[in-house]
Design a protein around this nucleic acid. Structure first.
Lengths: 113, 113
DNA sequence: GTTATATTTAACCATATGGTTAATCAATAT
DNA sequence: ATATTGATTAACCATATGGTTAAATATAAC
């Protein structure tokens, strides 16, 4: 038990670093998809796509539902929200509105004068 | 000119998939840091950290300022905001509030009845 | 029961990754 | 001038990645 949260982020960021996998994520965001549906747009073997889906699964970005011989894949956005959470800390660097922490700092500074 | 935006995301996500690099990003978020300052907390050679910083640079997450023999690194949050932008599309999957697009869809559906 | 379909797994390959140590380079200090 | 310091680069290594083709598995259809 080292750090589950960190390990997850490793897997999630790695999974998202490949454009094919991001496209697969996008497709699943529309609706549930079978493996061959997901493979269809790509100029690449089904085996390759199968591996990509496994990477997404390891990152908990995909939930698979086996229904007879077809596997139905659906996006698990909870993993994406983990990225969002991670990013939250850095948001103040590009957002115009001050975040609560910064507001406190500004208030504190004003009191000094 | 294939797709600069996609290529950037590849590099950014890849850069962030390593916990050492995320820690470096965090350190730079506090303040500008020299390479050896960034290396200090890690049980790893300076050469290794130098490479990590290069990966972050390739992803445009680091801006380097050479000042004599010391290199000063500062976070370029613009690249992080690209991730935020990418995530924006998926936010509706975990946020409670509906996003504008969804609101429009709901309005449109209501009109049908 | 044989064939076809959906998917995974295995074996393989080239290249990338993340680390090491040793050598190099450039700027500062003595 | 020489030594020290901050950092990169080179050469190397083990393992991971992203693809291939071929074989295996499991369900469905005839």
């Amino acid at each position: 038990m080292v750090n589950q949260y960190e390990d997850n982020l490793n897997e999630i960021f790695h999974a998202l670093s490949d454009p094919t996998r991001r496209e697969i994520v996008y497709m699943m965001a529309q609706k549930e998809r079978t493996v061959s549906e997901l493979a269809e747009p790509f100029d690449m073997s089904l085996a390759a796509i199968s591996k990509h889906i496994k990477v997404l699964e390891r990152a908990n970005l995909v939930e698979r539902n086996v229904r007879g011989r077809t596997h139905i894949c659906r996006l698990n956005a909870a993993s994406l929200s983990q990225v969002s959470e991670w990013l939250r800390f850095y948001e103040r660097f590009w957002s115009n509105r001050f975040d609560p922490l910064e507001k406190e700092l500004i208030k504190a500074q004003k009191k000094e004068h």
